[in-house]
Computed example of a mutant assay.
Amino acid sequence: MCEKIKKVNNWLASVFGDQPVPQFEVNSRVMDILYQLTETSEARCSDTALLIEDLKQKTSEYQTEAIYLQDVLLEGVGLSPTSLSKPAADYVSALVDSAMVLGVRDTSLGSFMPAINSLTNELLEAEKSNIRLERELGALRKTLGSTLVLRADLQEDIDSTAKSQAVEGSKAEERLLTMDFVAAKTAELTIKLKRSEAELTSRNMDKSITHQAIVQLAEEVGTLNTEIIPLRKKLESYLDLSPSPSLAQVKIEEAKRELAAIDSQLEENLNFS
Rank of each mutant, 00 (worst) to 15 (best):
A89C: 06
S264I: 01
S93T: 11
K207E: 13
L140R: 09
A115R: 04
N269Y: 07
S264P: 00
K4S: 09
S46R: 13
T210C: 03
L189I: 15
A99S: 14
H211V: 14
M31K: 02
V215F: 04
E42Q: 15
L235T: 06
T82E: 13
L266G: 02
V149F: 01
I214Y: 01
T59D: 12
F272Y: 14
L176R: 15
S208Q: 11
S170D: 15
Q155E: 08
T223R: 12
A88S: 12
K6D: 12
N269W: 06
P81L: 12
V92R: 08
K128Q: 11
T201Y: 01
E168D: 08
P81R: 05
S202L: 06
G138V: 03
L123T: 10
D180A: 11
I191Q: 06
E268L: 08
L224G: 00
L37Q: 14
L140N: 13
N204I: 05
V96K: 06
M179T: 12
T147L: 12
D47Y: 01
L224S: 04
S202I: 06
L176Y: 08
A166R: 03
V221E: 09
Q70Y: 02
L69P: 00
K171L: 13
I67W: 01
L123Y: 11
S60L: 09
V92T: 07
V30E: 06
S164T: 11
L109E: 12
Q57Y: 09
S202D: 10
L51P: 00
K233Y: 02
E25T: 15
G17E: 05
K163M: 11
S118W: 03
S129I: 01
F24E: 05
T82Q: 12
L51N: 11
A88N: 11
I33A: 09
D180M: 07
T143K: 14
S273H: 05
N9W: 03
K192Q: 15
I158W: 05
E258H: 10
N117C: 04
L270P: 00
G103I: 06
K194E: 12
P20G: 05
L154F: 04
V221D: 03
C45E: 07
S85K: 05
F272V: 10
M205T: 12
Q265V: 11
V72P: 00
T190H: 07
Q265W: 00
K171E: 08
T107G: 14
E267K: 15
R105Q: 12
I5F: 04
A88G: 01
V77D: 06
W11R: 10
R132F: 02
A66V: 12
E75T: 15
L259H: 03
P230G: 10
T82L: 04
K86E: 11
R203W: 04
D157H: 10
P114W: 06
P114H: 09
T178S: 10
Q70I: 09
D54H: 08
R257A: 14
L73R: 00
Q165H: 04
E174M: 03
S46Y: 04
K194D: 14
E173L: 08
E53N: 14
T186V: 09
S202R: 08
R175A: 10
D71G: 08
